[in-house]
């Protein structure tokens, strides 16, 4: 690299774009990205700018990397939560886009069609309340995990495709069918990957998932 530059082109365009950076551009996803895509994009972005990253040092200065990381966190902290995301979309997404693509607001759309078979825990009405419930949950049972996953519109197929964990194992986790569980070492690893993909703290889930305590 001949010489370090002051600012990258993309950062400039973000600075001038109205006054707020576009969170979707920062995470390099489409405005209609699903929850699983947002989580994956966030992990990849963090990975790109991590310390000693092979892919970042020759293109960006330390200062730029720090700035990028801050923006990535900022974007994720909004887009991660459906309620915050909807508010953000209302303010920042161009109005015509919503007209041409009606299902842009996928959350409300899906809610209408969502099968009533597994409602989120009683008394939960808004997304904000739901996220509060998630934050306060101490014990993640199979049913709780399932409702969180469904609330975030992540399908088991999505998780299976990304983690290469077979769908029957994922089902067993949610249904707490301990007879079908693989040996504990695998089970812990599966649970971790599953938890990460639905946006939960893996360790918290592993520590509190009830059937795991009985597993030797």
């Amino acid at each position: 690299m001949s010489r370090k530059r002051k600012k990258s082109a993309a950062v400039i365009s973000l600075d001038t774009a109205k006054d707020k950076p576009n969170y979707y551009e920062i995470l390099q996803i489409e405005p209609d990205a699903r929850q699983a895509e947002i989580i994956r994009a966030y992990r990849r972005a963090k990975e790109t700018y991590k310390q000693n990253s092979l892919t970042a040092y020759s293109l960006f200065s330390d200062e730029e990397i720090e700035k990028s990381l801050a923006l990535i966190d900022e974007a994720y902290q909004v887009l991660e939560y459906p309620e915050k995301r909807r508010l953000y979309d209302q303010v920042h997404l161009p109005a015509q886009e919503e007209e041409t693509t009606p299902p842009a607001n996928e959350d409300t759309d899906d809610k209408d069609e969502a099968p009533p078979s597994s409602p989120p825990p009683a008394s939960i009405q808004t997304d904000a309340e739901f996220e509060r419930f998630v934050a306060e949950t101490r014990e993640f049972s199979g049913a709780a995990l399932k409702s969180i996953r469904e609330h975030r519109h992540i399908s088991l197929e999505d998780i299976a495709a990304q983690t290469k964990i077979c769908k029957s194992n994922l089902n067993a986790i949610e249904e707490e069918q301990s007879a079908l569980f693989p040996p504990k070492v695998f089970m812990v690893s599966f649970l971790r990957q599953y938890a990460a993909l639905i946006g939960l703290e893996p360790q918290k889930v592993v520590d509190s998932y009830p059937p795991l305590k009985d597993l030797e």
């Binding site: 990258s8 082109a9 993309a10 390099q28 990975e47 790109t48 092979l54 892919t55 293109l59 960006f60």
Partner: peptide
């Protein structure tokens, strides 16, 4: 393997 993804992200950020 992740380096490929990071490379892609960095290209998009740097070159747009």
């Amino acid at each position: 393997i992740e380096i490929g993804h990071s490379f892609k992200v960095a290209c998009k950020t740097y070159f747009g």
